[in-house]
Design a protein around this nucleic acid. Structure first.
Lengths: 106, 106
DNA sequence: TGCGGGTGTAACAATATACTGACGCCTGTC
DNA sequence: GACAGGCGTCAGTATATTGTTACACCCGCA
């Protein structure tokens, strides 16, 4: 994992709002509008947070048809375990440094 | 660890600049001006980053007199190991929720 | 046909974070 | 005394993040 990825991943959970979302999802998958109600935020805002969480693999989403025929976007917790030590960071930094000094798209 | 603390701690390392600082410190303690040179940022900016890192316990600082009599602020890496899982987060959220719902300063 | 409840996104405002440049103060040396 | 090098901080600016409001569209149902 390089520095940018690690940074993005950590930033994704380093937010009280997103922690709330994850905690809420622990009880099982929920569709977006319902989730918005539970955590008390607008759908638009929730979408932004979900995008970050999904980009770093903390959640998965799936659009499905309910029995009543309406579309529901289910969001579910993805299993994860983050272990960060000075070595994790040093390794991430090492990759980034190489990329920066040698160029990445020749 | 409550939600705000966890959030601040994660945010502290969720930054490429601060990862760079930590990686640099792995080689041993360095004084501020020298560190600023090595990571290529202004002292003023570095101070801001160091404040966040120190607040979350990733580094320690100590002001000492050099043999030449000038003051040097040494920055050293503090040992740490961060393990984040859904349970870590759920627990942090649980604490925050209680604090919010019951009020904290009666 | 007009709700009520979903999805998805664009435009904008507000706030937090990162960053710059300059200042003052201290010490030792030429 | 002038310079070089260290410390610490403030005011101001740029940029990123967070949050709001409003829109368009789809489906089922009374």
């Amino acid at each position: 994992m390089n520095m940018e990825q690690l940074s993005a991943t950590l930033a994704a959970i380093a937010s009280p709002q997103r922690m709330l979302i994850l905690a809420e999802l622990q009880g099982g998958r929920v569709h977006v509008s319902e989730l918005a109600r539970r955590v008390g935020m607008s759908r638009a805002l929730l979408y932004m947070h979900l995008a970050k969480l999904e980009a770093s693999g903390f959640i998965t989403t799936s659009l499905e048809l309910s029995p009543e025929g309406t579309a529901l976007k289910h969001v579910a917790l993805a299993p994860f375990s983050l272990n960060v030590t000075i070595d994790t960071i040093a390794e991430a930094v090492a990759h980034a440094t190489v990329a920066n000094q040698q160029g990445e798209t020749p």
